[in-house]
Design a protein around this nucleic acid. Sequence first.
DNA 1: GTGTTACCATTAACATGTTAATTAAAATGG
DNA 2: CCATTTTAATTAACATGTTAATGGTAACAC
Lengths: 162, 162
Amino acid sequence: MADANSQSNLQPRPVSKSMPIALSRAREAVMLHFRPLLAERGYTEQQWRVLRVLNEQGPLDATNLARHAALLLPSLTRILKVLEDRNTISREVNPADSRRSLITLEQSMVAYIDSEMKKTEAVYEEIINQFGASNTAELLRLLALLAELDPPALSNRHLVQP
Amino acid sequence: MADANSQSNLQPRPVSKSMPIALSRAREAVMLHFRPLLAERGYTEQQWRVLRVLNEQGPLDATNLARHAALLLPSLTRILKVLEDRNTISREVNPADSRRSLITLEQSMVAYIDSEMKKTEAVYEEIINQFGASNTAELLRLLALLAELDPPALSNRHLVQP
DNA sequence: GTGTTACCATTAACATGTTAATTAAAATGG
DNA sequence: CCATTTTAATTAACATGTTAATGGTAACAC
């Protein structure tokens, strides 16, 4: 017996090499640095993302806002409800297509977001200081590439007969 | 005026270069490939992770199980409740320290997990095929490095006077 | 036109993420 | 010993993730 652990010649991928878990862990390590800022502001990570996107892109409909903020529409629906109640955004229906709404950042938020983003940038500097500028650039490159993976071949999704 | 968008000489970091968002997007792209497998099995991603860790590491207490599976303890508590009801794990208290429990994978699950992990490995092959073996190795290296970032300097957490 | 299909957004239901509070048991320090 | 402080795990409360279903509107095909 070569090894008490050799169950089938092929070892299953250890958890330590799981890509989703590695991505989660890395994200968590980064978020530890940003959470204090978010707590000060009184916005969650995802709420703040929505504000950043609107500040950066201008008014958007929900679908595109979700795309830019990397959120699913049901999450965005709930977030928009909260942000609207706090008067940080407003909504109107697109007259050309009444399915679509147009979400706009309140003018009063623009200066605040810009000023908070400077704190965010300072945290980034700390992180990049430790992690290295070239590591950071390389990581962002690889992540963007990975995000563009072809979606799976959608095998036998449900075998619905047309 | 050089540029209608130059609000303060320093542009805030665009959402496209946000590390947490980039990590989320990449994770989502990868998960798209694994979700069909999880759906077949009838386990969620996190439930399956717990089973994998137990299969790989043997019995563990909740704290270490959470660490290996990259879950927070409150999430793990709920997951263990479900898995115990489904008879895929069992729990006993550690007699040497009755705060601690010992969580064990049911023997009947071992063969099943091993066989399912072969399907997982096949999906990995597809992904690595597209993404490239060296990109994969480099990405995992960078992610592990990033996960080891020093935690933030824990500035003025609450200003508790001792 | 009318029926069908596709699309946008919301809702529903359940699982997990996140922070804080709580309980019980162990370690620690007089 | 006893009081205090840590630690392990759970619970609570709210936000988001995830999938499926729903309601309304628009585009399409006859």
